[in-house]
Design a protein around this nucleic acid. Structure first.
Length: 232
DNA sequence: GCGACAG
DNA sequence: ATCTTGTCGC
């Protein structure tokens, strides 16, 4: 198996990483609604780590947006490119994610990633960063509210409440995907609207709290990491 | 200065 | 993210 390399222009420290986020932030496209839910392709991306062995594995799983059937998969394994720092997650995950996407036989369509897009200290989370680098429509679905807050929301599937930043801006939405279950936290990445991102998220959660895209990608990158670990 | 903090 | 058994429930 091939171990991908960290890009030569990757930031060496946190200050450099923040500088890059400040530079790229204005390239995010926020006025495109994005693909219609249920049509075309939807691709989930996720990453698993083995910090002891300095390994990271990423997976991209392409689903038919209408049937949610898997139509393509790809993985990539690499060295950990950056430590986990809240607000700088993209620098840890992107090299492997980009490699997995590049290994797909065809275009991914809309991309769904773990974590945030606009809901970010500098309004440039993983989903935004991935979108700007690839030009693809991307949205983020996170499992935790990070530093953001939201009011109460109904118990029924589809109930939502604005996810608010400290300055009161709605940077995302807490969205209940399963009746009576903790909500997920949706935010727009690139070339998708928050409303459309939520509509996609609901279509991707007919049965579980998390989108089928991330569930499939999570299982695949863990398997890829196991194989990479076993191969050494 | 200290704590909180996507994965 | 990751370390981890059994267990309650559809």
């Amino acid at each position: 198996m091939t171990i991908i390399e960290t890009p030569s222009d990757w930031p060496a420290d946190e200050a450099a990483a923040r500088r890059i986020q400040d530079e790229l932030r204005d390239r995010v496209v926020r006025d495109e609604p994005g693909p219609a839910p249920g049509t075309g392709l939807v691709t989930g991306v996720d990453v698993a780590y083995d910090d002891d062995r300095d390994l990271v594995a990423a997976a991209a799983v392409v689903l038919d947006a209408g049937t949610l059937d898997v139509v393509a998969e790809a993985t990539a394994v690499g060295r950990v490119a950056f430590p986990y720092v809240p607000g700088l997650l993209a620098f840890r995950e992107l090299p492997a994610v980009l490699a997995a996407l590049a290994a797909l036989p065809a275009g991914p369509g809309l991309v769904v990633c773990d974590g945030y897009g606009r809901a970010h200290p500098r309004r440039f989370g993983l989903a935004s960063h991935l979108g700007v680098l690839t030009g693809l429509p991307v949205l983020g679905v996170a499992k935790n509210p990070f530093t953001f807050t939201h009011g109460p929301l109904g118990e029924h599937r589809g109930a939502a409440a604005p996810l608010l930043a400290g300055d009161g801006e709605e940077v995302g939405r807490a969205l209940r995907t399963r009746e009576g279950v903790k909500p997920v936290y949706v935010s727009a990445g690139h070339r998708v609207t928050l409303d459309n991102a939520c509509a996609h998220t609901l279509r991707l959660t007919p049965r579980y709290r998390l989108p089928e895209t991330t569930r499939r990608a999570d299982a695949l990158c863990r398997a890829a990491l196991r194989e990479a670990t076993a191969a050494r």
